[in-house]
């Protein structure tokens, strides 16, 4: 399998009886993802969106062998849901929910880390390996299978770049949305580490944005470890004024931290090209993969 999600992925949906949870459960099933269970406390024994519902993740795991959780429960309860999944032995927890208090995320990151569970998100679109599994909310029909790994802090920009890849006759190995919050479980560095060992990935597209220093940390890791796979980066929010939170809770330039200049410089120092636009990113990737000439990328 590419990375994180694939044919072996067995999904339990936390918050399966909610509007979003239900809709996306059906979408994931339609794509062929093995969604094996749902969890809503108090609704155990019923069936929702075609999957059996349990009262707890522990029961769901025991009955169905689920190894991956996707979370749609509302923000006040999502931190607890992450911890419940980790305690039930789920190896990978993907939290789609947006709006978790940062204190809850800090606690959940500590809790999952102690139990060896990987957390992706919160406030992310999920992860998808085209042709194998979609554990997320991305529109599946824009994806093609291919060799480009995608990791991004933004959902819609991920769709934008995947669409451009498809138009350019290129495809995706695995696409990972890590989320737009200030504190997140899995970072750019973590995902680049996974792509490094993945034979199905030849090039990585990294979509960063203003705020924090996760991009700088990833670039520094690439430089320090002599990262071999080509990485093409893009930084969103280059025209954003300092001190303003641009939609994502984590997208804010505070003082000297989180500026686009610092991020672009870091990638340049690591030898990773940074595209000025997503079209340019895809053109660079096409060049690296030796894409046939004359393939048009609309502007």
């Amino acid at each position: 399998m590419a990375i994180l999600v694939g044919n072996d992925t067995r999904v339990v949906v936390q918050g399966v009886t909610g509007r979003e949870g239900g809709f996306h459960t059906e979408q994931m099933l339609e794509y062929g993802t093995k969604v094996v269970a749902g969890v809503t406390p108090g609704r155990g024994g019923s069936v929702a969106s075609g999957v059996p519902v349990f009262d707890s993740v522990l029961q769901a795991v025991a009955e169905t062998g689920a190894n991956t959780s996707i979370i749609f429960v509302p923000p006040p309860f999502a931190g607890d849901a992450i911890c419940e999944a980790a305690d039930a032995g789920v190896a990978l927890v993907i939290c789609i929910t947006e709006g978790l208090p940062t204190n809850d995320v800090i606690k959940a990151v500590r809790f999952t880390g102690e139990r060896g569970t990987r957390l992706i998100g919160p406030n992310c679109p999920g992860a998808m390996t085209p042709g194998q599994a979609k554990v997320g909310i991305m529109p599946a029909d824009i994806f093609r299978e291919g060799k480009v790994g995608v990791v991004s802090r933004s959902g819609t920009l991920t769709y934008e770049v995947v669409n451009l890849l498809t138009v350019a006759n290129l495809g995706v190995s695995t696409c990972v949305g890590i989320g737009g919050d200030p504190v997140i479980g899995t970072t750019f560095t973590d995902v680049l580490d996974l792509f490094r060992e993945d034979p199905d990935t030849a090039v990585v597209i990294l979509i960063g944005e203003i705020g924090g220093s996760d991009e700088e940390a990833a670039a520094e890791m690439m430089r320090a470890t002599g990262y071999r796979k080509p990485v093409v980066a893009y930084i969103s929010g280059r025209s954003a004024p300092p001190g303003k939170r641009m939609g994502h809770a984590g997208a804010i330039i505070s003082g000297n931290t989180g500026t686009p200049q610092s991020k672009v410089r870091a990638f340049a120092a690591a030898g990773a090209p940074v595209g000025e636009t997503l079209n340019e990113v895809v053109q660079i990737v096409g060049g690296l993969l030796g894409a046939p000439r004359g393939v048009g990328v609309p502007s």
């Binding site: 933004s154 819609t156 920009l157 934008e160 944005e209 929010g237 280059r238 025209s239 939609g247 997208a251």
Partner: peptide, 13 residues
């Protein structure tokens, strides 16, 4: 989407 709107600001600028 926050990322898309941010990028739109960038493209206009």
């Amino acid at each position: 989407g926050a990322g898309l709107v941010m990028t739109t600001l960038d493209l206009v600028t």
